[in-house]
């Protein structure tokens, strides 16, 4: 009897502690790491950057109450399918492999993939020049898939966040890293990235890179995908998108 009572009490406490709040706000998952100029947390704990601002505009347009939810980037898709978040807006490229797991909205920006390396090393973005080098990539990224496919003689080192790969590049533990060109331009322009320079864009491969970066949505919620698609189209049309982008970039980030 005692056990039953304790179990009942423990059960009800557990139920209470899980906070029976019904899901209302749409939880937007972002990578829990500094990824300037797209998303990074300031000392006050507020997230800001281009992607955060665009997210705000999209949510406003779609009349959604959105809540930023930082998740480990390499766990975003698992978190989406496990109902921990409702939408992914974390510079996630639309690829065939990922499309088997989740739905994507149309793209909302695109960025080429570049090789960034130590200034003292001569290399470009070709397989031949990278042979024998140590290349840092982020776990689960398109850059990792690309490097695995195209750079055969390269030693790959995988990081949970791109920020860690950048740190090891500065520390000299890796010779180069492959990543999105926009944040990397920011990185090499920073005081920390003085060691390194952009060595070049890798040859395109649509199969790996896909058409661009979109928001990820669970397959069971096509109506949410539609809503977001409509909102992206609307902010592209009404000038909101360009207004936000001008604050961060001096070129068209949407791409062709």
């Amino acid at each position: 009897m005692t056990i039953k009572k304790i179990a009942a009490i423990a059960g009800s406490l557990l139920a209470l502690s899980t906070g029976m709040v019904q899901a209302q706000a749409v939880k937007i998952g972002i990578g829990a790491e500094p990824y300037p100029p797209f998303s990074s947390a300031d000392a006050a704990g507020n997230w800001n950057g281009w992607e955060i601002d665009i997210m705000g505009a999209i949510c406003e347009e779609a009349k959604l109450e959105c809540k930023i939810t930082p998740v480990a980037w390499d766990g975003l898709i698992a978190a989406l399918n496990g109902n921990k978040i409702d939408v992914i807006m974390a510079s996630l490229s639309i690829t065939q492999e990922r499309s088997k797991q989740i739905d994507f909205t149309q793209k909302y920006y695109s960025t080429p993939s570049v090789i960034v390396g130590d200034k003292s090393l001569t290399m470009d973005a070709t397989p031949a020049s990278l042979e024998g080098k140590i290349l840092g990539v982020q776990m689960g990224s398109i850059h990792r898939s690309y490097a695995l496919k195209h750079f055969k003689g390269v030693e790959l080192k995988e990081y949970q966040t791109q920020d860690e790969a950048n740190q090891d590049l500065v520390a000299g533990r890796i010779d180069a890293t492959q990543a999105d060109s926009l944040p990397m331009s920011d990185f090499v322009a920073s005081s920390d990235g003085g060691c390194c320079e952009i060595k070049g864009e890798v040859a395109p491969d649509v199969e790996v890179f896909g058409p661009g970066i979109g928001a990820g949505v669970r397959k069971s919620q096509p109506e949410l995908t539609e809503k977001l698609n409509a909102a992206i189209k609307a902010i592209r049309a009404n000038g909101k998108y360009d207004e936000i982008s001008k604050r961060y970039f001096d070129f068209d980030i949407y791409g062709g």
Binding site: D74, A78, G82, R98, Q101, M139, G140, K157, Y159, D168
Partner: peptide, 22 residues
């Protein structure tokens, strides 16, 4: 594994990343 050493845990992280099986 969080400092890039590929132990047994990191191998399975890779499996999760490659296959999207959680």
């Amino acid at each position: 594994a969080t400092i890039t050493m590929i132990d047994i845990y990191a191998v399975f992280s890779k499996v999760r990343q490659d296959t999207f099986i959680t």
